[in-house]
Design a protein around this nucleic acid. Sequence first.
DNA 1: ATAGGGTTAG
Length: 426
Amino acid sequence: MIRFLHKVANSFNSAKQPQIHFHKQLKPARANLTLKSYLKSNPIKTILLFSDLLRKKISAVDSYSLLYVIKACTKNSLATEGKQAHGLVIKLGYEPIIFLQTSLMNLYAATASVADVHQVFDEIPNKNVVCWTSLISAYVQNQKPNRAIEIFRQMQMDDVEPDQVILTVALSACADLGALDKGEWIHELISQKTDFSEDLCLMNALLNMYVKCGDIRKAKLLFDNVKIKDVRTWTCMIVGHALHGQAEEALRLFSALEEENKSRSSKSRETKDQLLVPNDVMFIGVLMACSHAGMVEEGKRYFRSMNEEYGLKPRLSHFGCMVDLLCRCGLLNEAYSFILAMPIQPNAVIWRTLLGASGVQGNVELAAVARSKLGELEVSVVGDDVALSNIYAAKGMWEEKIMLRHEMRQRRTPGCSSVEVGKLHS
DNA sequence: ATAGGGTTAG
């Protein structure tokens, strides 16, 4: 970390003249309020004002200013600026401030430098539960849920008492792993603590864990027991039903939410403030349910109502759900025209959906189109070629198959699997 | 004044 020190002053001095004006008589305490307020509206302005302060006088910044600038770097995943801020923490002798250390851990987690997160953690002399949370969260954010759980165990062996926040993070690691047994063990810990089950964030994480680990009965039981729910609670349950092929339950739940909102909006103003307005994530669950059940017309209707009734702009994933729905129902040509009419560029997943469906239905023409689109996107992996090659084989088109194999060998792109965990609950 | 948390197609 020391080696970044010498760069610090220079890089801040050579920064472009910021457009932000401030009075040089501002004391840190005063400027810090401004830094903090920019953080919410536009974190880049926090960084510009900070470097401006620093250029004039190093004593114009204190540990609070640094905290805000580190958070600004975290929000925008700015690795270089973040390292410079870390250098300043050391230079100004703020290393013993634990708030700065945990903020630095979050910064490195956001810039995908998990090794740096761990190093900062190791150098903290008196680690509290917040430090452990940041560490575990870093591993979860960077797709290492196994490591996150290991560290959670290690923390307990160090006799650090877990709180609601770290249990929430640990549960998301279990969800990512599909580790039902570990999730249930954390559920036990929650039950032993008074008041923990009143934390909605924690309950939503627990619900999500049961959903992702495939225990839909426990999920539903929990959902019914959570008295005050928010949009995420409902979304989680709707997605849960959809993932488990329970399309009817998913759609029934969505209708129940709409009914609940109708009755609330006709009542007092207080209940109007508690409206559970569906968001775009919830519609992914709804569209997934339609897809599983093969409900084309309903799917199209929900897709339209998303925009018309709720003013939600469909994102790439919603278009993906629609393509999946059309393909599953065998409407390949309609899926293809739907893709061509999309207002945003389709990604590889969408073309791959069409390619897969074309394979199943033996539509060589569309399969070739989808494959060439995948090629254009330069993300073609061996798996796509294998799919197409099998279609050719099934059709007895051996020459094409041999040519494809030859192409694949020349590209030498290794195939890969996304399954890393031994345990799969489906 | 200051640190850590939950839903997202295939």
